[in-house]
Amino acid sequence: MKINDFEEKALWLRRELWKMVMRQRKGHIPSYYSCVEIIVALYYAGVARVVKGLPDDPNRDRIIVSKGHAAAVQYPVLADLEFFDRGELERYTQPGGLLGMYADFRIPGIEGISGSLGHGVGMGSGFALAAKKNNKNYRTFVVLGDGECYEGSVWEGAMFAAHHKLDNLVVIVDRNELSILGKTEELLSLGNLEAKWRSFGWETRSVNGHSFEELLDAFSLLGRTRGKPLSIIANTVKGKGISFMEGRAEWHNKMPDDEQMATALEELGLKPLVEA
């Protein structure tokens, strides 16, 4: 696959997510859309090792979307990997369905629970440390929200992973600069996140989180960090791909009206959705 194909896959993922969410009008589209390229890079660009139809493959790379309100970004991908029936996407959030709004470890392909923020680095360190102790060469990828970096436990985990030289651990910070109430730098500055991670002893790289070229270049550092865990600050736009949502905090949890729906469908190149 080439960059164009990845971009095609990213559009496919945005469309699938839109359909999944709008059927039930439940979900966090802007939080998914800021990390779509990160997810596509991991699953489709050869960064993470996952095998179709084998969610429990002992050698699989572990992928944790620690910003749990956006873990559903994985659902269409996991269905595409035949980890569960595609029909589950239509039963999203419904009684008897497999898929809820937040990550549930019982979903094939979801490694651990998330939703409450700040657990992914510690949990991921546990996976990475177990790999070292068991002489396994799988890697662990943790997608963090930038707002999640307000949680102190993130930094406890960062210190631990660096001390234990977990160079099989990668954190990707989805730096969309928004939390629920507004812009992080206006509300409570996170400052230079790359410098913060570096100061904790991590190898770091700051990239455009919507550029496959830059993301793949950063991921290529994996295995070449000389004993350091890797933190990639992916600078992103919350709501990327939907003009009226991009960079706007109020869309975190909001659903579009009819007019906005029409605009979004046009931008995504989707036909009008049939109301259930």
Partner: peptide, 12 residues
Amino acid sequence: QNMVDLASGLAL
């Protein structure tokens, strides 16, 4: 806090 999160990854 990290001790417990770490334990979860190890236990899993």
